[in-house]
Each structure stands twice: as C-alpha cells, then as structure tokens.
Computed example of a mutant assay.
Amino acid sequence: MRHKSFEGMDCPIALTLDAVGEWWSLLIVRDALHGLSRFDEFQQSLGISSNSLTRRLAALCDAGLLTRHRYQLRPPRDEYRLTARGRDLQPVIEALGGWGRRHVTRGRGGVRLVDVETGATAEPILVDRETGKPVNTTDFRYVAQRNAPPIKRAKLPTS
C-alpha cells in the first residue's frame, strides 16, 4: 500500500520509486526481462491476485515501462512488452539481484544472467561511464548540488 507520493521531491530516486517502488512492479519488470508477457504467466510466476496484477500492469503501462498489445480478440487477451524505458531498468534489477544473492539468499535463485558467448554467469557491477571504474564508497563521494535540501548541503561537500 502506498503511503505517500514523492512527487514534490527533487530527487531522482524518490521520483523513480513513485513509478516503480511498489514491490510487485519490479518483480513484473524482472519477469518481463525473463520473457514473460501474458497476464497468466505473470500471475503464475508471482502468485499475485488478479486485481493487484491488473492494477500493477496498468500503472506500469501508464509509467511508460510496458506497452499492452492485443493478441486475441475473443475473449480479449493482451500481452505486455517492455518499452526501452522499461528495459533500462535491467541494471537496477540485476543490482538488486546481485545484492540479494550475496547477502540474503546465499547464491540461491532460479534464474541467472549469463554471457551469451561463454555461458558464464555474469556478475554485474556499477561502473562510471567515463572512467570504467567500479563505483564504490572509497573512490567516489556524494556532492551536494545547489538545489540539495539544506540538511544535505550541511553534511556533504558542495560542487
């Protein structure tokens, strides 16, 4: 259940959570990345109620992460495909999965991302696009911008 909207915040993380922060949303995107596209496939994979799934799919379409395509007229049946915007969530999904495999499930899980050429399991990391360096708290730091909230300008260096 959503308790509030982050609409008034000037924070990309908060505003992203408005679009995908409900827990089913990222699981639906994960399943779409795994090739699922039909209502019954999502429902079978997630064990989510029909009403909840209907609401989540509509919200993901409204957010521009999925598009609905009719594949059957009688009875009407739709499939849901990731948009480019939705596919751009793959690094987020993989980062959450990697963290979960390291700290929560101790390597368990039924699906892995593998290298197409070698078949080796991928171990995604976040890297800086300019330098290629892995992002970490030793080599990188947060810097408050002019529009940062006062509490953060007080705590962080400024640019």
Rank of each mutant, 00 (worst) to 15 (best):
E79T: 15
S52P: 02
L82F: 02
A14W: 08
G8V: 08
Q90P: 00
C11P: 00
S25A: 15
L27V: 03
N136F: 09
I48R: 13
A122K: 11
V111T: 04
E94P: 06
V20S: 00
E123H: 11
L89M: 10
S45G: 08
T137D: 13
R30Y: 01
L66Q: 06
E41V: 00
G8Q: 08
I13R: 14
F6C: 08
R153D: 03
M1C: 04
Q145H: 03
Q44H: 08
R129A: 11
V104A: 10
V104G: 01
D18H: 13
A120N: 14
I48Y: 09
C11I: 00
L46G: 06
G97L: 11
R74M: 10
V29E: 00
G86M: 12
S37K: 05
K152E: 15
P75R: 02
P157K: 04
I93W: 14
A144K: 06
T16E: 11
L73Y: 10
S45L: 00
V92H: 11
P91Q: 11
V135S: 11
R146D: 15
I13Q: 12
L57N: 12
V127K: 10
E123F: 03
R56L: 02
T138K: 15
V29G: 00
T121C: 06
G132H: 00
R141A: 14
G21C: 06
R38S: 07
S45C: 07
T105G: 09
P12Y: 03
T138N: 15
L33M: 07
S5R: 08
T67I: 09
E117H: 13
A120Q: 14
C61E: 11
L57I: 12
L33R: 01
P149Y: 06
